[in-house]
């Protein structure tokens, strides 16, 4: 298995079940054991990050990084850094519901079109 297998739902599931942070570590670009899975992971990461942002999940809680098997020091550094940042953010708080009157959802627009 490879970072290319990571379905964005895995990350959402983790946050839903109470994770305060999610860290994805993959092989370096160009070095993926399965050729290019990590490039796909990178694309999905950026999309998902935008979405998490809209959910009110702070930046430091979701991270993608590259660590090869021989980079013990980097591995430790990334983990400690992530832990430090997530600790500083504190436990994940459920976001307050968006004030519906301000932002129009897709349903509202359809309703208008039909109305």
């Amino acid at each position: 298995m490879c970072t290319g297998r990571i379905d964005p739902q895995f990350v959402l599931k983790a946050f839903e079940k109470g994770a305060d942070g999610v860290l994805i570590l993959g092989c370096h670009p160009g070095d993926c054991h399965y050729r290019e899975g990590n490039y796909n992971a990178l694309r999905r990461f950026h999309l998902l990050k935008k979405m998490l942002d809209q959910f009110g999940i702070e930046d430091g809680r979701f991270r993608l990084d590259w660590v090869s098997a021989s980079e013990a020091e980097k591995f430790v550094g990334v983990i400690n850094d992530m832990v430090k940042k997530v600790k500083a953010l504190g436990p994940l708080k459920p976001a307050p519901p968006l004030p519906l009157s301000k932002k129009k959802g897709r349903g509202d627009i359809q309703a208008e079109a039909h109305g």
Binding site: M1, C2, G4, R5, I6, D7, P8, Q9, F10, K13, H33, Y34, R35, E36, G37, N40, R44
Partner: peptide, 26 residues
């Protein structure tokens, strides 16, 4: 080779990774 890239991308959920199914990972 079982990298699972197709499984993560399949919008209908019809692609499965043997031994790394979405249900197992959940």
């Amino acid at each position: 080779k079982g990298c699972g890239t197709c499984v993560a991308a399949c919008p209908s959920g019809s692609a499965r990774s043997r031994h790394f199914t979405t249900e197992q990972i959940f």
